[in-house]
Design a protein around this nucleic acid. Structure first.
Length: 879
RNA sequence: GCGGACGUGGCGAAAUCGGUAGACGCAGCAGACUUAAAAUCUGCCUCCCGUAUGGGAGUACGGGUUCGAGUCCCGUCGUCCGCACCA
């Protein structure tokens, strides 16, 4: 008997249509069952999906299908992060409107995603570039503004003078714009900011409660927020008309090691001091020109310029410190001024050595003597204070406390000399972008009324269609009519804000909108959002560990503050999946070659590649992230077209743990496809042998072989369920293989036994066990290979869909063995094993162990010191 | 520089309460079926000695704790990731 090969090209569209017709994945907000919200990071519509998407969405879909089978009301939506630069770049390059380009890409990618058989509720699809979406974003912007969560201030930005646009730090490469190649300038621009710093403390503290987030991500966020506890100290100034400078320090204990004060180049005192000092002014200009590019900062020498001002030491009016303008002091952290303690800070030490300033150690490690000094490495370790007057002998924390206490209670001009201050590295989130393809900032600038929010009834502020991209700059700004409006307040002519929002804003609340995307009047329905959120399982790339996730956490809090949500945290569970990587190939002339352009053979154990076009040798290079530039990409369409979606999905789950990179290989895909075909053959074989077996045909006393198969099936069921629950898909896959191996062996055995008398000779026991095991196999496979599972399900005679069938329950009685085999060690080396009853007592086990010939041999007649019996685990004989 | 993760067969990996190292898969080898090939099925597959029963070594390296260590502790080396003049 033989069965035709499984044909995914026929079967897959068929089942997708059935799911569609029955609206199986449509989610009802009124469904009373416990909710489960699983979400994968939505894609940017770049044109086509890539293997990274396939991996990401497959993982989410396994969870969604599994939870659905477990009886949850599952929300599993999809949308498009549809605003952004690439659409404008395409517009410039191909003279196509960003909207057309974007929606064409969405259409293509939607079809591609649908061909994967994802169990998504497509009725909730949203695109962030749709006014139906961004009108709510504009509404919230205004609400945030009224709640004091939005501010407008000047900030220094990277300005590309050719493209007329602001660049993010990562878009500045070697001091030049990534697109134009022009030298980037630092410009002061008035920008809109979300005051994320308002929540800095809460964003940090709440990380501890995100127990289902990877530690790695929590640590990264914590470092990004960068909380530090320190002291603001006022130093009186002499030698000019500026009375004092305030510095921020986290090491007030080292105050007696101070040897200078340094201020940032754009510090107001520096500007003031430069007024009568052209050399200083020139130095300051020079500092500002130094790029923000990482490399430049890394290599920059510590440089400074003595202002001539003297700072008075807070504990000694006779001790005067020189005040420098220094290139390594940042204006936007702390107060933009520091006191330098060279002995205990490497930067200060480098600076002191360059300018011949004193280096006085005031903290020494435990046990060091009075000569303790620092040469070219600052000492920032633990220790005790010395050379420090009243602090001598103090530990660092006590010294900090003592300094704070003294300076706090000491007043000058009616104010305390110092004040405790918690500082954060986190900055407010600048959201202004001088671009067209983004959400318009709903603000009108009026000469009389100032900044006026667009009235709610006038929302959305939509983008004009008639724009051109043939000249650099923001099309909104140069549009002939769009920005000119009457002031909503006084009716006089006014202009719209022409900046649009950072696209990170769009993606900071899409997960919230998914809970009720049909609601037109409000961004969210409180009754609905508060029930669906937080997202139970969020899955995406680790590259969003900081910005996207932090912005989303901010947004939830801001939405709560403005009544749009009742929660603080958007994502209860987070999983960051690894990348899809692939070998690289290069021809003799160094050209990158696509996997499809070469053939690999194995000769004498060594792999060798040749170029198909000319038979020339090809160098097999390192394994790297799939990228167009290295041509090591594989198109999901090709794979799905050749092998079907189930094969692609299954391969994405196999082998590598999901958080790690997975190497795409042709052999691996073949292997997955073989498994698809094997399951198909096996299920058909079993169906032929057993026919439909009803549950109540279960025998109470099974023969040994049938019982063993049942046990294997239920063990696989219990383990694989647990694996999926914990997102350990590679282990769940292994369970599937094991069950398939066991079922196949049993089926082959049964058929051989029956060969003499015919299929009807197979015992009822075995028929039952085979049918049950096949049923479980199909159900376990269903979340991973949903189309194949439906096809197999109907072969087994079920008339419903496996996608709407509850997850099977493992029979606990089948998970325990009556007899267990314990490994036996002698002095820690394994010498054999012993099989005993599961509940055998220690004495029985010991006797059985000592009777073993292998144990006797290994003991070699030595006296037995003790026997360690670890129940259910191991026995160790110590001799 | 700071912070974090990780080093297991030819390869991807299992073994996460300290208890049989290498489940499962890939590649490879041998065999069955076939005129032949593909597909499929069966067996072998960490290394060394041995025909074999068996023995020895083995989880980056060096120490330690323990009856017992891939797992815990100390040190070294290596790889990867994040942050980076944040006072």
């Amino acid at each position: 008997m033989s069965v035709e090969r499984y044909n995914p090209k026929e079967a897959e569209p068929k089942w997708r249509q059935v799911w569609d017709e029955r609206q199986l994945f449509r989610t009802d907000n009124a469904d009373p069952r416990p909710k489960y919200y699983v979400l994968e990071m939505f894609p940017y519509p770049s044109g086509r999906i890539h293997m990274g998407h396939v991996r990401n969405y497959t993982m989410g879909d396994v969870v969604a299908r599994y939870k659905r089978a477990k009886g949850f009301n599952v929300l599993h939506p999809m949308g498009w992060d549809a605003f952004g630069m690439p659409a404008e770049n395409a517009a410039m390059a191909n003279n196509v409107h960003p909207r057309e380009w974007t929606y064409a890409n969405i259409a293509t990618m939607r079809d591609q995603l649908k061909s994967m058989g994802l169990s998504l509720d497509w009725s909730r699809e949203i695109a962030t570039c749709d006014p139906a979406y961004y009108r709510h974003q504009q509404r919230m912007f205004i609400d945030f503004l009224k709640a004091g969560l939005v501010s407008r201030k000047t900030a220094r930005v990277n300005w590309d003078p050719v493209d007329h646009t602001v660049l993010a730090n990562e878009q500045v490469i070697d001091g030049r714009g990534w697109r134009s190649g022009a030298l980037v300038e630092q410009r002061e621009l008035t920008q809109w900011f979300f005051t994320i710093t308002r929540f800095a403390q809460d964003l940090e503290s709440a990380l501890d409660g995100l127990t289902r987030w990877p530690d790695k991500v929590r640590i990264m966020q914590k470092n990004w927020i960068g909380r530090s506890e320190g002291l603001l100290v006022r130093f009186a100034l002499e030698g000019g008309d500026i009375p004092e400078v305030q510095v921020y320090t986290t090491r007030p204990d080292t105050l007696f090691g101070a040897s200078f004060v340094a201020i940032a180049a754009d510090h107001p005192i520096a500007r003031k001091a430069a007024e009568g000092n052209p050399d200083l002014a020139a130095f300051i200009e020079d500092c500002k020109r130094t790029g923000t590019a990482q490399e430049i900062i890394d290599k920059a020498e510590k440089r400074g310029f003595d202002t001539g001002l003297k700072a008075v030491h807070p504990f000694d009016p006779n001790w005067k410190l020189p005040v420098y303008v220094a290139n390594f002091v940042l204006m936007d952290y702390g107060t933009g001024a520091i006191f330098g303690c060279p002995a205990h800070d490497q930067r200060d030490l480098d600076f002191a050595r360059a300018y011949g300033l004193p280096v006085k150690a005031v903290v020494r490690p435990e046990g060091a003597d009075d000569d303790f000094a620092v040469s070219d490495t600052a000492y920032d370790g633990d220790g005790r204070l010395f050379n420090s007057a009243f602090l001598d002998g103090f530990g660092i924390p006590e010294a900090k406390e003592e300094v704070a206490k003294r300076l706090e209670s000491h007043e000058r001009d009616g104010f305390p000399v110092a004040e405790r201050k918690v500082n954060y590295r986190l900055r407010d989130w600048g959201v202004s972008r001088q671009r067209y393809w983004g959400c318009p900032i709903p603000i009108i600038h009026c000469e009389s009324c100032g900044v006026v929010p667009v009235p709610e009834t006038d929302l959305p502020v939509t983008l004009p269609e008639d724009v051109s991209f043939d000249v650099p700059g923001n099309p909104l700004d140069r549009h002939p009519s769009w920005k000119h409006v009457a002031c909503p307040n006084c009716g006089k002519p006014a202009v719209r804000e022409t900046d649009t929002m950072d696209t990170f804003v769009d993606s900071s609340w899409y997960y919230a909108r998914f809970t009720d995307p049909f609601l037109e009047t409000e961004p969210t329905d409180r009754a609905v959002i508060d029930r669906w959120l937080p997202v139970d399982q969020y899955i995406g790339g680790v590259e969003h560990a900081i910005l996207h996730l932090l912005y989303s956490r901010f947004f939830m809090r801001a939405m709560r503050a403005t009544g749009h949500s009742g929660l603080d945290e958007p994502f209860a569970g987070l999983f960051t999946q690894g990348m899809v990587v692939h070998e690289t190939y290069r021809g003799a002339d160094g050209r990158w070659l696509q996997p499809s352009e070469i053939r690999i053979s194995t000769e004498g154990g060594a792999r060798r590649a040749i170029e198909l076009a000319n038979g020339a040798d090809v160098e097999i290079g390192s394994i790297e992230k799939m990228s167009k530039s290295k041509k090591n990409t594989v198109d999901p369409d090709d794979i799905i077209g050749t092998f079907g979606a189930d094969t692609a999905r299954f391969f994405m789950l196999s082998d590598s743990p999901p958080e790690r990179d997975v190497i795409w290989t042709e052999d691996g895909v073949q292997s997955s496809h073989r498994f698809v075909q094997r399951v198909w053959r096996l299920v058909n074989e079993v169906a032929t042998i057993t026919g439909i077996v009803k549950d109540d045909e279960a025998a109470t006393e099974l023969d040994a072989a049938s019982l063993a198969l049942r046990k294997a099936a239920h063990r696989a069921l219990a383990t694989a369920g647990d694996d999926i629950e914990r997102l350990r898909f590679n282990r769940a896959v292994a369970q599937l293989y094991e069950l398939t191996n066991a079922l196949q062996a049993a089926a082959v055995g049964a058929r051989q036994a029956a060969e003499t008398g015919g299929i009807e000779d197979i015992s009822a026991d075995m028929r039952f066990a085979l049918y049950e095991a096949a049923t479980i196999l199909v159900q376990l496979a269903a979340p991973m290979m949903p189309h194949l599972a439906e096809e197999c399900w109907s072969v087994l005679g079920y008339t419903n869909l496996v996608a709407e069938t509850p997850w099977p329950v493992a029979d606990d009685a089948l998970l325990v063995e009556d007899e267990i085999t314990l490994p036996v060690q002698v002095n820690g080396k394994r010498r054999g094993d012993v099989t005993v009853a599961r509940d055998a007592d220690t004495t029985t086990v010991e006797a059985a162990v000592l009777a073993l010939e292998a144990v006797q041999r290994a003991v070699e007649g030595r006296p037995i010191k003790k026997i360690i019996v670890v129940p259910q685990r191991i026995v160790n004989v110590v001799a």
